[in-house]
Design a protein around this nucleic acid. Sequence first.
DNA 1: GTCTATAATTCGATAGAC
DNA 2: GTCTATCGAATTATAGAC
Lengths: 187, 187
Amino acid sequence: MTAERTRRSDATRAAILTAARERFARDGYDRATIRAIAADAGIDPAMVMRYYGSKDKLFALAAEFDLALPDFAEVPKDGLGHALVTFAIQRWESDETLAALLRAAVTNEGAAEKMRAIFAGQVVPMILARGIDPAEAATRAGLVGTQLLGVALCRFVLRVPPVVAMTTGELIDWLGPTVQRYLTGEP
Amino acid sequence: MTAERTRRSDATRAAILTAARERFARDGYDRATIRAIAADAGIDPAMVMRYYGSKDKLFALAAEFDLALPDFAEVPKDGLGHALVTFAIQRWESDETLAALLRAAVTNEGAAEKMRAIFAGQVVPMILARGIDPAEAATRAGLVGTQLLGVALCRFVLRVPPVVAMTTGELIDWLGPTVQRYLTGEP
DNA sequence: GTCTATAATTCGATAGAC
DNA sequence: GTCTATCGAATTATAGAC
């Protein structure tokens, strides 16, 4: 009996979190209302508060995620740009949490801080692991970020027509060399 | 007397528009409230409605602007990337309207459409004027957009530390060749 | 565990006095 | 032209019945 109750409430919790990710991704933090999230999950708005305490805490959990960057250890150093762009585009297409975070980060300082933490805690270490000069790693990670966040912004958020129209293959061919130069090249 | 009244109300109108641009730039469309804009302008919130009718119309005017792209006619074709990046960064630093538009476009479809219109109506024509294959112009403009909007996002909106720390000169040296390749190069 | 009812805010917008 | 007062709607969050 206890087990059944627990399973039920766990399913509800998960449904709320899934609906929250979708709403935050589509509407951003402000426009995504608890009422809408609850409606998507097919439950009462009060349940969201009961399970997660507040909208802020719900967002914190919905936006909690791991980039899950491979270490690219077996990728030749001059193929890093291609591999990183390929991974990034695939990641954006398969996980709407990233779009949620970006949409929120633009007007929410907490989300922006989370975005910066991903750079410092996940992107920079990956670059360091590939033996790039530690003195330059942060700058190179930042440059890579401008290109990868820029394409995500244009393709998945603003939906700029020519950027949406490109195939992932074309996109990778164009952006790969750029990211490669930011990682290992010179200005 | 009439002239004096007219001057006074014109000054108030202008003060509202300036305050609106700052608020929209800093907070985005939703979080920028008419009350806050009025407080910044030192007038009553009701005046904003009287002068501009609605928050939507006020934003439409606050976000109305011209990229004012030079035609770069005297710039050698292989210096286009450098010139365009230089112009873009300068433009972002001197006019907060662009940040307002970007912040709003992420959660407001009207603002996003305005952003797309700038691409189609101002960036693409400039590229065409420099004799780039019309069949490729839209794609090349889109690629340029991913890099330039990306750096604006990281530097002025998300304030990613390593991107903020770079001097404009370093930024131009890194991004110039990228934009040049998107304009005239091959994948 | 779930839902109804509602408190407490905050917002855009309106009406009308002066 | 300017401001006070307020409406109506929407929001997060809470209290408590079942």
